[in-house]
Write a protein that binds this DNA or RNA. Structure first.
Length: 417
DNA sequence: TCTGGGGTCCTAGGACCC
DNA sequence: TCTGGGGTCCTAGGACCC
């Protein structure tokens, strides 16, 4: 792998959900640009989903954090305008962004819904000087799609990502190796990628407050304190990173979880919630042609104490009924009767399902597959709500909880990202 | 006061086997 | 009585990211 002379761009949508919401509203007749006032995209407090998902730049003086509760954000900024999220719009904006970027390089990696890497190495012959090209890409996105991005330019993904995080919005920044000391080392250590809350506090206890101080600390000490994570962040602080811009690693597992509008206090409600989550998880498994060898169930009580239990399945499966049955077993082993705020299931240890094993004891496995396939096809054609299990009738529970998509007509998870 | 949901990776302890 | 040391697999929980 060529590590030295690459040119990598990291494209980061400024306040993504909020910008996308603002653009959509302007395009549909609103005269108010959410980006110009203190505003945020936030979840529904009445169903206990009330956290801040994105915030406008004018909220900066109020020090509102992404992920904090809408309630506390409003305490800090009483006139904050909070609008609900519409994921299907954001997914379309994200797709439009990626399709523009693909014109500039064949090596494009979507890193999240609002972040993309492209490898611009050797693209200069087509599109010119990297910095000028980055400006043109940024301006074109603004003109054609209506939202602004930051673009970070460097010789690896880590530095490009750090660069795009400098002053916002609508900016191109470089962070090449010879600029690290000047531009990155003075920053507080928590701004380094992969340094979160727990690591920050450990580093502070050792007297390390800036990225520069981290970079110049003996990596052996960091390994002692933070194990393998220590060496990783030491490398990052020194700008050392060489992963390719690629489609990204294969999927290791997938899961869905949900916070209930009210605490579940009975086993039956919990089981139905698990079934609902199983519907989406198993459908997603079938959609990517995988079966899961391990299933895990997690619960969180009203005090936010969470516990989980997992087990290896006898035979890898993606059958809704088999996953549901096992999820119930795991749940019953876990639950001690406490009121439940949150339930989740996760499938991992994935195998390709084209060669599946027929187990003697699961003799109806063929029937299960046929049933699942039929249901998937109906939902694909007529929408996710076109067919549902009757036990969900009159319960007030969604029959397919989890997944980013809740809007009716949007096609299923299959088509996102 | 109220605190989402989707992931990945790492660690540590116990079971089990040689 | 006093009690090895690996190695691997499994599980639970925590830390991190967007």
């Amino acid at each position: 792998m060529e590590t030295n002379n690459r040119i990598i761009f990291h494209i980061d949508v400024n306040s993504a959900f909020l910008s996308w919401e603002a653009v959509y509203r302007l395009q549909h007749g609103s005269t108010l640009d959410l980006r110009t006032i203190p505003s945020a995209v936030g979840g529904d407090t009445t169903t206990r989903h009330g956290i801040i998902l994105a915030k406008s730049i004018p909220t900066k003086p109020f020090k509102i954090q992404t992920g904090e509760s809408v309630y506390s954000a409003k305490l800090k900024c009483p006139h904050l305008m909070v609008v609900p999220p519409r994921y299907h719009i954001y997914i379309q904006c994200s797709k439009a962004l990626v399709s523009i970027l693909k014109e500039y390089s064949p090596a494009v990696q979507r890193f999240s819904i609002d972040e993309v890497f492209i490898d611009y190495t050797n693209m200069g012959t087509h599109w010119g000087d990297p910095i000028e090209a980055a400006h043109r890409i940024k301006d074109r996105i603004k003109k054609e799609l209506g939202f602004t991005v930051n673009i970070g330019v460097s010789s690896n993904k880590l530095l490009a990502k750090m660069a795009s995080g400098f002053q916002k919005p609508d900016k191109v920044h470089t962070l090449f190796i010879d600029e690290i000391q000047e531009k990155m080392w003075p920053l507080p250590v928590e701004e380094l990628f992969m340094v979160g809350r727990a690591t920050t506090s450990k580093l502070r206890n050792k007297g390390i407050f800036t990225i520069g101080e981290l970079a110049t600390t003996d990596p052996k000490l960091l390994s002692q304190w933070l194990k393998s994570h220590g060496r990783l962040i030491w490398k990052f602080a020194n700008g050392i990173e060489d992963s390719p811009v690629s489609g990204g690693p294969p999927i290791k597992g997938l899961g869905n979880s949900t916070t209930l509008p009210f605490d579940a206090e009975d086993r039956k409600t919990a089981h139905k919630t698990l079934l609902s989550l199983t519907e989406t998880v198993s459908m997603r498994l079938r959609d990517i042609g995988k079966s899961a060898g391990v299933l895990s169930v997690s619960i969180k009580d009203r005090d936010f104490v969470s516990v989980s239990r997992q087990k290896k399945l006898d035979v890898p499966t993606n059958s809704t009924n088999i996953i549901y049955k096992n999820a119930c077993i795991l749940f019953d082993e876990l639950w001690e009767g406490q009121p439940l705020r949150h339930l989740g299931i996760r499938a991992s240890d994935l195998y390709s399902d084209d060669l599946y094993q027929l187990s003697f004891f699961e003799a109806d496995i063929e029937k299960q597959r046929a049933l699942d396939t039929a249901v998937d096809e109906i939902r694909e054609q007529y929408g996710g709500d076109s067919i549902m299990r009757s036990c969900f009738l009159y319960t007030g529970l969604g029959h397919m909880m989890g997944g980013v998509i809740q809007e009716e007509e949007y096609p299923m998870m299959s088509s996102i990202l």
